[in-house]
Design a protein around this nucleic acid. Sequence first.
DNA 1: CTGCATCAAATGCAACAGCATTTAATTCCA
DNA 2: TGGAATTAAATGCTGTTGCATTTGATGCAG
Lengths: 125, 125
Amino acid sequence: MVGTWHYVLAKHAKAMCSLERELGEKHDLGASEFEVLDRMIRHDDKLRVQALCGEVHLSQSALSRVIARLEKADLVTRLVCDVDRRGVFVMITDEGRRRYAEALPTHRAVLLEIFSDAPVPVPVS
Amino acid sequence: MVGTWHYVLAKHAKAMCSLERELGEKHDLGASEFEVLDRMIRHDDKLRVQALCGEVHLSQSALSRVIARLEKADLVTRLVCDVDRRGVFVMITDEGRRRYAEALPTHRAVLLEIFSDAPVPVPVS
DNA sequence: CTGCATCAAATGCAACAGCATTTAATTCCA
DNA sequence: TGGAATTAAATGCTGTTGCATTTGATGCAG
């Protein structure tokens, strides 16, 4: 219990630190930016901010700002939803796909480095 | 690999969020503050900042500030090391022990809540 | 002994996160 | 239909973080 928590804390700290540094230096992306791009790629379509919010480990406000940054960098576009004009769709751009594809190997390398000693893969929740 | 990472991300986010809220509301402590107090209790003696830095998931500067906050709240005391006057010792106060003891059940309750579904305890690294 | 590299901790600074609030659009019901 | 309640997203604000630098103390080479 507490042991699991310490494991999570340690791995999270190490991985986050490495990801932030590697993704930042090599691809000018933050971990949050990458996570959002990752979700977008998985859905491969325009997606409501609301929906993204449920999948990403960020508060609604933080997500809103990450999207803003990504939009400024032309990695995603925002477009208002016609049926419900409160809602906003986010769509990944070709440039976004390119940058994601570039960054993916770095991301995987970091995880490999950090979790190579993982004794037993923990099931995905 | 990626699965483990997602597990770590999810658990960390949930636990951190709950800990921050519960410890904050009920005991006016942040997760970092609690972690530092926890380390101090485990060593049960004065401890070099340097040593703490290696055990805690914080940068040196962040740790320095957490200690400053804890000192302001009279939960720890700082005292310069005589043999090497660059170094600083941190010592937990009685009030610190009291507050820690108070907060511990809350901390454990959150972890229990979040990791009760943990299928197999992951070994401590 | 002196000067320079090193080390410990603190601090300036900028970025990012979450909470609370705001803005704008929609829904509900009387 | 019209006004209150609700919802989605954006924004103001504050606190914490990490990086880089500073401050102060040690140690070591010449």
